[in-house]
Nucleic acid binder design. Structure first.
Lengths: 352, 352
DNA sequence: ATGAAAGCGCTAACAC
DNA sequence: GTGTTAGCGCTTTCAT
């Protein structure tokens, strides 16, 4: 055990060069006071003489000293770091790339910053969402925001049951123990579908993996919109497509080649919509002439694609704010109810 | 001072409900051994009896116990968290929204995850990049990656001088004390400009804020490409435009309305390029007919815009990996040299 | 108004 | 092989 109580000893191992970090004992020595006084001075305590306080603060500042937050947190049992978990697809080891995901991360970062929290960005296997608990159990973060429910509503429920503060971006499901915040997927799916039906389209394909709750809900909207006009869509029009473009593309091409007839498409992301347009045009079918395509998310570039995308707008900025607000509630021991944010269709060229 | 050495006391304040966190003492008590043994067992030490080790590990696992990393880090003087700083524009308080930025965050997240590091995402005022040092001084992170140099090469140099492990995404500048990783901006600007010149365009506008080093370098390429064919671009063709679309748009419109003649545009981001196309078309000028437009970044959607964008491709995935690799080098006490990654133009419809 | 000392949850040197 | 104990950098009670 090293004896030097002052931070003079070279930091061992790992920190190879002499990156000795300044600590309170150093400030105390230099200021000719005790660590206790430094601690009080830096926290602005009135217990310490105003003149001394001032002097110590200056000293610390001039040396770029910052209180070691690890130690402070340990002592104070506090922590201002929130974990934001972005699942990745284990099979494809796909990178975070969907513009919508990235936007929402940005908006969460902003909201957390506004409230003085730090954001620890973490990736976990989408099949093991419960791995997120490690962040919490190890005390690294005080709560977690997970982007998307993926296929594991069950795991999310278990996490919440362990009473880890948790908010999930996704759909509101029956018997849900965790707090979710999400767009109104059912209504979004319905609006998208109804829009196509109103335009006289009859055979509308649905692109998305209904094993994901959000997609499942959109599909319900899709069915409901059909029912509202006395139709039942043919099952062959429901195509299970993952969100990852690379994995999705061949499936879309197969669909176009399959001979299954359709004149409308409801895609569960703008990215899917764009790839669908590509696949269709590659086989000589026009959009929106032969087929009307509606996307989902209204990503920033949706208005600049070719064709400009008709799509269901999700309120990204509000999403970040709401996710964070809900988590803060939980941290205050207040029960946070799931929240469904309104969505609306934006009509552009891909499905006028 | 609370006396209970076992974690039975309710956690005070902030944690309102009884979210008492399990700790080593609890496992020790339940396992009928000392904390030291638990510590050794969980670290897989062979000093402890194999059977006991096994038993303690099971016990901990079954209770979802995870070692408190704050305490462990304090004791071990280690830390596996890297700060990733995304500056924001103070005036506009713009959100992170440029797809290129978001992509690079994603690629850094992946690279850090691959190396077992956590990523703390933090936003700072782009006029106070030196605020990033607080992350380091407070021991929250062991090193920092800053996205972009913005207007403060000087502040970055100061940070590096304090010998904080720092890597910056941006251009390589003379007298640079910090390690930068970036695309070859000079060459990128040159390729973009040369491409337009080759197509017979004569008056080429340059869109970007040359106060930013990366833009400055691209502008050098722009000038060099002109020089190579014996031209000197008119100064009125250099337009100082910020990256933020909302701030940029009016400037672009003013340019189009100004009567300044031009038949080509080199934009410093794809987003700017797209907005430029909009502004031009709004005034009845065609792209690429009347004006050829080249973007920068080759964001994922560049191939799907209208018109599809001719643009300078930046290697995003490689960028994340290189940034992280450089930081790891620094952490190992190895000097990391600035690195300039090759870029190449991708020719699409906006400037064939 | 200031300092000495205990302890936040953990690890490791030193006993036995 | 296991327990006892000191101490990582900080805050706060208690004594002065």
């Amino acid at each position: 055990m090293r004896k030097t109580s002052l931070a003079q000893g070279n930091t061992p191992a790992s920190e190879s060069t002499d990156r000795k970090r300044l600590q309170m004992a150093d400030i105390a020595r230099l200021g000719g006071v005790s660590v206790a006084t430094v601690s009080r001075a830096l926290s602005g305590s009135t217990l310490v003489n105003a003149e001394t306080r001032e002097r110590i603060q200056q000293l610390a500042q001039s040396l770029n000293y910052s209180i070691n937050l690890g130690a402070q947190n340990l002592r104070l049992q506090k922590n201002l770091t929130v974990g934001v978990v972005v699942p990745y697809d284990a099979q494809s080891r796909q990178h975070i790339s969907d513009p919508f995901f990235l936007s929402i991360i940005g908006s969460i970062a902003d909201a957390l910053t506004d409230h003085g929290y730090d954001m620890l960005l973490s990736r976990v296997d989408s099949e093991r969402l419960d791995a997120a608990s490690q962040l919490y159990d190890s005390g690294k973060v005080i709560g977690v925001i997970i982007i998307g429910q993926w296929r594991h509503h069950d795991q999310l429920n278990q996490l919440a049951a362990r009473n880890m503060p948790l908010v999930v971006w996704g759909g509101e499901l029956p018997q849900q123990l965790y707090c979710s915040v999400g767009g109104d997927n059912r209504n979004g799916g319905e609006q998208a579908t109804a829009h196509l039906l109103r335009a006289g389209r009859q055979r509308i394909a649905f692109l998305g993996d209904a094993a994901l709750p959000e997609v499942w809900l959109r599909r319900e909207g899709y069915l409901r919109a059909h029912a509202a006009v006395g139709l039942t869509p043919s099952p062959e029009l429901e195509i299970a497509v993952p969100f990852e473009p690379d994995a999705a593309h061949p499936i879309l091409e197969r669909l176009c080649a399959s001979g299954v007839a359709f004149d409308g498409v409801v895609a569960c992301s703008d990215l899917l919509a764009i790839h669908m347009v590509q696949a269709l045009r590659a086989r000589g079918r026009s959009v929106p002439g032969d087929v009307g395509v509606v996307g989902y998310d209204d990503m920033p570039l949706a208005a600049f694609c070719e064709p400009t995308l008709t799509t269901v707008h999700q309120p990204v900025l509000e999403a970040g704010a709401e996710l964070v607000a809900a988590l803060l509630q939980l941290l205050n021991g207040v029960r946070a109810l799931p929240r469904t944010l309104p969505v609306h269709i934006v009509v552009r060229a891909s499905a006028p």
